[in-house]
Design a protein around this nucleic acid. Structure first.
Length: 620
RNA sequence: GCUGGUGUGGCGCAAUUCGGCAGCGCAACCGACUUGUAAUCGGUAGGCUCCCGGUUCGAAUCCGGGCACCAGCUCCA
């Protein structure tokens, strides 16, 4: 064999440009970077994935293995051992991995020709498929005898790999296998399903521990758990998957969200419309949804010789409102807003709490404007989006500009013009953004706004899309100042995206401890003894008079019991009233997460809450 | 939709291996206690063990089908 076997330098670049030799770790700051930056972790996790594959192959020598990249927070590797892995298997594999790590086997890079690699992996069909593909490409390019790189540790394991890796398995200081599940070979649902093992690896045991804590914390504040626990909503099986019902407290939070949103939209010059949930097939034939997304729509209903569908989108209805009469350039831009509930037949396996449902309420609006108005509308719209999201306590934004996909409708020049307008709006906003080439919808480029929540998790929320297809399909017009007829531009936009999903994100972001203005119960009054009940109710009605949501806990329980209930309920304020308060006409005020203040006059407390609600602050 | 897993009073769980009286805690209800800041004591009631069918003398438990949920995959206008 002519393999040029050599010790791999495993060199890679740190984000600051320094080249690092993993055999000789650098000192000081670079060392810290190496341990914790994205590139370093990727190398570490990729190496751990190799160790995982080595362990699986040593336990099941006949296992077929596919591939195993690093991913966010960890890595995976796909195998085929003829059956799924059990939790006991994972433990066994983990133990084997620990052995391999303890042996501190060096990772060594080698190269060979494609045909040699094909020979080496002759009994590994998945590897072979890749190798043959590389071979095909090489031949297409007229390269004969092209070479591939491999990584080997001792004589125990070898895998096709671009690298780099850590110098030896001993560098893996903290790892854990987390779960296993099925995954289609090459992500294609028509191909065989392999068994994927997920794991995570970190530079230190402490970092691993922090990661596990974060997972636990995420589980604790999972909206699917908090929702029923806090009596906000549930999913009755009798209604069906992906179809939640909101209880009074959840309904109240929704109402507050919607009221705020509506007030802001009113101030921003939107008009409010209302449209039905069903329409004849004609409408969705014109819009094109039946052509493109029929499989994602609820099935048709036949009535009196016509075919009706639940609407999967609101836009066609809004367009009909625009088209109900001739529009002049003087009335543009026209901004039509609606909390519109649409129905989409999401496949059963993708449903996920409130974040992926089948009945989706969008805070949907469509802006119809002249071509001249497009830039200005987009710029003010993006600012509007950020302002509204900020009001809900979300401050960490990232944006994504999605450009023309491979399959698209319309003219490339129109796409360029719209994409440029979106880009300018992004530049004007000062927002950080990345460009997702080819990720736009088939009819429009778009800006998606993502937020990071309290746990640093990223969620896609708002979307802004510039569309010239719908105006064309519906033959929309406006009369210009010269009396001529022109086609308006159309902007689709949603801030929450889906009210249900936004609700879930807020619930998890705040872990159920909402700021005072959003909290369904704002104040719990705890009278010490029966003789204080009248005063407690008197305080409650005085607060109610100021629009404050206050309730008295007059249950036949000890003080300690009721204090504990108030605390665990995450209500922003607990007021304890006894002889001292009754006599002085004051309150003992205990804000959630802060110390109590005694002797606070009722009127002063009411002012405090009102100001807090107006400024949408947390209790203090 | 696909792969694997789970489904027991309102909630959290036990009994499921190997078929044999469905049990515990919290919550609820009743009573006593009248309390100064995170669980007072005693009692009562609550079950089509997700649904339909099968095997069996007997099914929460075994088998078949369905529904819902969970971890992923695929998808997301």
């Amino acid at each position: 064999m002519s393999d040029a076997k050599r010790k791999d330098a495993a060199a890679y670049l740190l984000p600051d440009g320094t080249q690092v030799d993993l055999d000789r770790p650098p000192e000081g700051e670079a060392r810290v970077l190496l341990q914790s930056d994205g590139a370093g972790r990727q190398v570490l996790r990729h190496s751990t994935a190799h160790v995982l594959a080595q362990a699986v192959l040593s336990i099941w020598p006949d296992a077929k293995f596919a591939g195993g990249p690093p991913i966010e927070d960890g890595f995976y590797y796909d195998f085929d051992i003829g059956r799924p892995f059990t939790p006991e298997d994972l433990e066994r594999i983990e133990a084997k991995m620990a052995e391999i790590i303890a042996e501190d086997q060096p990772f060594e890079r080698e190269e060979m020709s494609i045909s040699e690699a094909a020979e080496l992996f002759a009994d590994q069909p998945y590897k072979l498929e890749w190798i043959n593909e590389m071979d095909g490409e090489a031949q297409e390019q007229g390269v004969v005898g092209d070479r591939v790189s491999l990584y080997r540790n001792q004589d125990k394991f070898v895998d096709l790999c671009r690298g780099p890796h850590v110098p030896s398995t001993g560098r893996i200081r903290a790892f854990k296998l987390t779960r296993s599940s099925g995954a289609y070979w090459r992500g294609d649902e028509s191909r065989p399903m392999l068994q994927r093992i997920y794991g995570t690896a970190w530079e230190t045991p402490k970092a691993l521990k922090q990661h596990m804590w974060r997972l636990e914390e995420a589980q604790k504040r999972d909206h699917r758990k908090l929702g029923p626990e806090m009596d906000l909503f549930h999913f009755p099986p009798e209604v069906g998957g992906g179809l939640p019902v909101f209880h009074p407290k959840g309904g109240l939070i929704r109402k507050i969200m919607e009221d705020y949103s509506k007030a802001e939209h009113e101030a921003a010059g939107y008009d409010f419309v209302w449209t039905p949930h069903l329409a004849k097939s004609t409408l969705f034939e014109i819009s094109g949804h039946l052509g493109w997304y029929a499989e994602g729509m609820y099935p048709p209903m036949e009535m009196e010789g016509a075919t009706y569908y639940p609407k999967p989108m609101n836009c066609p209805m809004h367009i009909l409102i625009y088209k109900s009469r001739t529009r002049s350039y003087r009335e543009l831009p026209q901004r039509l807003f609606e909390f519109g509930t649409v129905y989409r037949f999401e496949r059963s396996g993708v449903l996920h709490g409130l974040t992926r449902v089948r009945g989706i309420t969008q805070d949907d609006a469509h802006i119809f404007c002249t071509p001249d108005q497009l830039d200005g509308e987009l710029t003010s719209l993006l600012q509007f989006v950020l302002d509204v999201l900020k009001a809900f306590g979300l401050t960490d934004f990232e944006a994504e500009l999605s450009t023309r996909p491979e399959k698209f409708v319309g003219e490339p020049e129109e796409w360029d013009r719209a994409t440029e307008a979106l880009r300018e709006a992004l530049e004007a906003s000062g927002l950080d953004y990345t460009v997702a080439e080819g990720e736009g919808a088939f009819y429009a480029p778009k800006i998606d706004v993502h937020i990071r929540d309290a746990l640093g998790r990223r969620w896609q929320l708002s979307t802004l899309q510039v569309d010239f297809q719908m105006p064309q399909r519906f033959d929309m017009e406006f009369v210009g100042d010269d009396g001529g007829r022109y086609r308006p531009y159309m902007i689709h936009r949603a801030l929450f995206g889906s009210v249900e999903r936004f609700f879930a994100i807020l619930l998890e972001h705040y872990s159920g401890a909402f700021p005072t203005w959003l909290a369904p119960d704002q104040v719990t009054i705890v009278p010490i003894a029966d003789r204080h009940h009248d005063y407690a109710h008197d305080v409650a009605s005085r607060l109610a008079g100021r629009g404050i949501r206050a309730a008295v806990d007059a249950s036949d329980q000890t003080l300690g019991n009721r204090v504990r209930k108030a605390q665990t309920s995450k209500v922003p304020y607990m007021l304890v009233v006894g002889d001292n308060e009754v006599e002085a006409g004051t309150l003992s005020v205990k804000p959630r997460g802060a110390n109590e203040r005694r002797g606070v006059p009722v009127s002063e407390f009411a002012e405090h809450i009102c100001a807090e609600v107006a400024e949408r602050r947390m209790p203090a």
